[in-house]
Write a protein that binds this DNA or RNA. Structure first.
Lengths: 345, 345
DNA sequence: TTGTAAGCGTTATCAG
DNA sequence: CTGATAACGCTTACAA
């Protein structure tokens, strides 16, 4: 049978002939406690093998030191980097993470939000599902004053902070880069316009065209889920465009770009010679595909870290999610061969 | 100011003129409760906006419904699939996950184990860091009878179950496949022999050589961390072997294989013509590299799911981590162009 | 089938 | 700087 006596602050108190209150205070560096007793308390705690009971503590203090996370999917390179950053930042501050995935479904996201609410997270970090149309399911949090911070796939709202990159500017730069490299018919592989990341990228794309006197052509926008299959499908669409095929493709993520490239390469189309390519995310596959894919790099790790830090600051009253509207992180255009039509490199 | 009154079982009790005990029982489908009162209780609960307080519950019942997870890294495709599987299985059973990463450091792993212990997880799921040498840091769990299950990177131990694939057999098959395709000097890119996954893969490799009357050559084993840099380094090593270069490479993961291939291709070496390649994991990059990489597929999702299910079964007394020693999941050799020297396809 | 009452281990409040 | 005491909201003997 395993040993089973849990040591409590009362055991420590008895051991030292002081009160449990003092032990409680000593353990959490209360200012009004004698340095010496504090030291004794810690020694006794270590010696007796004490571990604090978070449940009793949460029950009483109403703080859980837990942050809820809702993401579309766990298994993408970007999102796992985000989580790595979150975990790092949270563990530094002794916060826990409860993680759930919406699997890109608004319905599941609603269920997850309820679960998080019932788990009494101190705050919630959300990146929205592909087809979420509103954020009613977070109302309960707003009403209770539980902070909600959106990251990457955000929703503009007066009660919450957003953590994003400047998708508009990044897309503008990508498109301009393609134009500078001799593209004049650029196709855009985009995602659901409900999501800021995709609508902003489309907007940046359009503006760059406009600024370079290129007419926007509806037919050159291909909206999809941006997965492997969608990339291949985009390629098939391009191949069917016998009349005036695009001479460049800007995809809103690397997966779609890469799978589109692979399909086109099979048919003998040369990249970037015939069609130049650029993606978004700097996924590991962008460095493997030949030619290597021009893309936009932004650190998932940094996004995750920023989200958690900003949440904890808010919880500590250092900042406020209502006043801080948006935090914009850096992103960089990474130029690789796939977009260099004029092989000047 | 946000609304702040939390509804408790007492509120429901008062509302219905019954006792809190009955409410508590009704809420959790206690057998000895009138169907009708049960229904009333649920209605009142919904109506009043009740949410149960897990802390009070855990405090009293000593169950946390939380499973701790320690993994080397969050941001690899394999591990994020594992987590996805775990999250799915856990949420089906209303369990929480607390996730932490050791960042491949034994030291951090020890710290994480302590944290998990203090968080009072009901059970612990672990995949070991690259250089962990012993598992003393889990002793506290064994002593308290808290189940520990290892997955993927496991440690054989009488007190715990392991969830793995048959790395030996898979490596044997890969090596045999390379031999069957005309390789006779096969290099192995391996990892730390402390880790079962790498030692078993080496063992399978050796046995396959032996069974085909090929002498094992120490010089053809390249041990590394199997990351991008290590792959490139392995390529440099191969290029230096002017005398008798290998005609095949079996890497213990896809990253090392792919980065090695890329470096070799730069120098004009043809794959699989000059050197055939095989990896391990079926990472997304294995489908992008040209030629596509032969590899071993095994589902991270399934591993994660199996680990959580087996943990929960144990916690429910359905199975026992001490008696179930090992659970072996399926893996498959995926043959792609990189290993097909005799282009018979 | 339902109720009473005693905790679970902590922290907040008030008092000294 | 320290202490007594009362919650926090739930579960569980025990009793009815």
């Amino acid at each position: 049978m395993p040993d089973d006596k849990e040591i409590t602050i009362y055991d420590i108190a008895k051991h030292l002939n002081i009160s449990a209150t003092t032990v409680s205070r000593g353990l959490k560096d209360h200012p009004a406690i004698n340095k010496n007793t504090r030291k004794k308390i810690f020694e006794a705690a270590r010696h007796l093998g004490y571990r604090s009971n978070t449940f009793a503590s949460s029950l009483r203090s109403k703080k859980t030191y837990t942050i809820g996370i809702i993401v579309p999917r766990l298994n993408s390179y970007f999102m796992s980097s985000v989580l790595a950053g979150m975990e790092d930042a949270a563990s530094r501050e002794n916060y826990n993470l409860i993680i759930s995935q919406s699997l890109e479904s608004a319905e599941k996201e609603v269920a997850n939000a309820h679960t998080m609410y019932n788990k009494r997270v101190d705050g919630l970090l959300v990146s929205l599902a592909y087809d979420t149309e509103n954020i009613h399911h977070f109302e309960a949090f707003f009403r209770k004053g539980i902070p909600v911070i959106f990251f990457d796939r955000v929703y503009s709202h007066t009660e919450s902070t957003s953590i994003v990159i400047d998708n508009y500017a990044a897309a503008y730069d990508v498109t301009k880069h393609l134009i500078d490299n001799g593209c004049s018919r650029i196709m855009h592989l985009g995602g659901n316009m409900l999501r800021n990341v995709y609508s902003e990228r489309l907007r940046g794309y359009k503006q760059a065209l406009r600024d370079h006197k290129i007419n926007f052509d509806e037919k050159l926008v291909f909206i999809s889920k941006l997965n492997e299959e969608a990339g291949a499908e985009a390629a098939r669409t391009i191949l069917k465009m016998t009349a005036k095929q695009p001479d460049g493709v800007f995809a809103a993520n690397d997966t779609a770009a890469v799978y589109c490239m692979m399909k086109l390469k099979e048919t003998g189309i040369r990249i970037p010679g015939d069609i130049a390519f650029a993606g978004f995310n700097n996924d590991p596959i962008s460095k493997i595909i030949e030619p290597n894919l021009t893309t936009v790099n932004y650190s998932g790790y940094d996004v995750g870290e920023a989200a958690v830090i900003s949440m904890i600051n808010h919880l500590n009253g250092i900042s406020n999610v209502k006043t801080t509207h948006t935090i914009i992180l850096r992103s960089d255009l990474i130029v690789r061969e796939s977009s260099l039509k004029n092989k000047s490199l």
